[in-house]
Simulated scan of single mutants.
Amino acid sequence: MTRVVLPAHLRELVQVDGEVEVEGTTIAAVLDALEARYPVLRGTIRDRGTGRRRAFVRFYACAEDLSHEPADAPLPGPVVAGAEPFMVVGAMAGG
């Protein structure tokens, strides 16, 4: 199982505390599983039409930014094994 850490506003939206566990070995598979379990997430992390990551959302795992990796690239081994989480992070912006 892949452990997923969602930002606080998305955890509140899906009414969960802490991490979520889903099956998936790629970014796309994890996001597909999240959206299947929590349909309210559709369109919040990825654009509904294109399926592309939203501009102010980032993905991290094993202290690496995976935001620009292809959606079908394999996740790092420790993430797939459940030792490390896959993190969805809202990017900061402003001025």
Rank of each mutant, 00 (worst) to 15 (best):
P85A: 09
R37T: 14
A91N: 01
L41I: 11
D47M: 07
C62N: 08
H68Q: 10
C62Q: 11
L6M: 10
L13E: 07
E19W: 09
E19S: 10
A93V: 11
E64Q: 15
V40G: 03
Q15P: 01
A91C: 00
P76E: 03
R42T: 12
G82R: 02
R53G: 05
D72G: 11
G43K: 08
L41Q: 07
T44K: 06
A61F: 14
A61K: 07
R53E: 03
V80H: 03
D32Q: 12
V16M: 06
L66W: 15
F59M: 09
G95R: 15
A91V: 01
A55P: 11
G18W: 06
M87A: 14
R48A: 13
A55D: 14
V22R: 07
P85N: 06
P70F: 09
L31Y: 05
R3G: 04
G24T: 09
R46Q: 04
A93H: 05
F56R: 05
A63C: 06
Y60F: 15
T44A: 00
A93P: 00
D72L: 10
E35R: 01
R3W: 13
C62E: 13
D17P: 01
V80D: 00
T50A: 04
G49E: 09
Q15F: 13
D65C: 11
L66G: 08
G51D: 06
A71P: 04
F56I: 02
A83K: 03
L6K: 06
D17T: 15
A61R: 04
D65G: 08
R48W: 02
G51W: 10
A55C: 02
V5D: 07
A33Y: 14
A63Y: 15
T2P: 08
I27A: 15
V22M: 08
D32L: 10
